[in-house]
């Protein structure tokens, strides 16, 4: 489960409430049907990994991981064995005697993860765990996190403002904006069937066309955009004034295709991005569009100011 949203949207606050670190002003909180609203953090027994990791600087790696086990008054041998197991799980063999300050950012993060998982909490809360890592390390840690999630079977609740991270790691995503929950669904659902314009625009690029006269017409919905009549699958949400299409579903054509959705546009600019080239287009009515095409397919007819047609399959349009 991922809590995703721009900074200041309330996702960390919700995480702190889940952990019991912040009081709730209204509403109730249930864990497996049991009301835990008023229960303080120390009895809730959730694992929490804070931004910046919050390791204990005066303890070694092994002592950090042993702390929650000592709190539970486990036997010395049990603690020793569990700590060794956790250190091995996060790949920090040979670092057990070091203090956190002697470790790199990625290693500190693993320690925090091992410490939070050591006592097998029912829920692990993670507040932007990757924000302090560089890109390569981040990818590596994400893989590791996915593996741990599979291996431990613990519920992970994960806060991030990075949408790619959220899509890649989550089984479900909750999208936040200014303290309000916008949509909760699987990554595929939030991406392909965003419930509103905020969700649509927050995740990836999207083209939103203002359409008129949207109405049910047999097995599908029709709507008018500038000079074109567009068809949208009936499953694409309630007909409204905004039709959203992801750029990767749009194709370009030189001539107006015989059937299907097509709108005319003029190339305003093209941006070379390696494997892909991003085209900035404008319709005769002044509506801006972006779409990416494989650089290998960009040929002579795609030059600035060239006029072309943009098409997409009817099931790819979504009403917002």
């Amino acid at each position: 489960m991922t809590l995703l949203g721009p900074s200041g949207s309330g996702k960390t606050t919700l995480l702190m409430i889940l952990g019991g670190f912040e009081p709730v002003s209204a509403g109730r909180l249930f864990l497996d049907g049991r009301d835990v609203t008023g229960q303080p953090a120390e009895t809730r027994g959730f694992g929490m990994m804070f931004q910046g990791y919050a390791l204990f600087p005066h303890m070694t790696v092994a002592q950090n991981i042993a702390f929650p086990l000592k709190v539970q008054r486990r036997s010395g041998a049990d603690i020793k064995q569990r700590v060794a197991q956790m250190i091995e799980m996060v790949g920090l063999e040979g670092h057990g005697h070091k203090r956190p300050a002697a470790l790199s950012g990625g290693q500190q993060q693993r320690v925090a993860l091992a410490r939070a998982l050591a006592y097998a909490p029912p829920v692990l809360l993670l507040d932007e765990p990757f924000s302090a890592l560089d890109r390569n390390l981040r990818g590596q840690m994400q893989d590791e996190m996915r593996r741990l999630h599979r291996e431990t079977g613990t519920t992970f609740v994960f806060v991030t403002h990075d949408q790619t991270e959220a899509l890649a790691l989550s089984s479900r995503i909750a999208i936040f904006e200014s303290g309000r929950l916008q949509q909760v669904a699987t990554p595929r659902d939030v991406y392909e069937h965003p419930r509103n314009q905020f969700v649509a625009e927050f995740l990836g690029d999207i083209n939103i066309l203002p359409v008129l006269d949207a109405r049910q017409d047999g097995g599908h919905v029709t709507a008018r955009f500038e000079a074109s009549l567009l068809r949208v699958a009936a499953t694409a949400g309630a007909p409204g004034g905004k039709l959203a299409i992801r750029p990767e579903h749009m194709r370009i054509a030189r001539e107006k295709p015989a059937a299907g959705n097509a709108i005319q546009a003029r190339v305003v600019d093209h941006i070379y991005m390696g494997a892909e080239t991003q085209l900035l287009l404008e319709t005769p009515g002044g509506q801006a569009l972006t779409l990416n095409v494989a650089t290998a397919q960009v040929s002579g007819h795609i030059t600035d100011n060239a006029s072309l047609w943009v098409t997409w399959p009817e099931e790819r349009g979504v009403f917002l």
Binding site: G20, M48, A54, P57
Partner: peptide
Amino acid sequence: VDERALLAARGMGARRSRVFWQVFVPMTG
């Protein structure tokens, strides 16, 4: 002292007295 380290200790089930003696006091060593 990093406030989050204290929260983390509480989150791991440590009562206030343990957080104080085993985390806060050593961190101010």
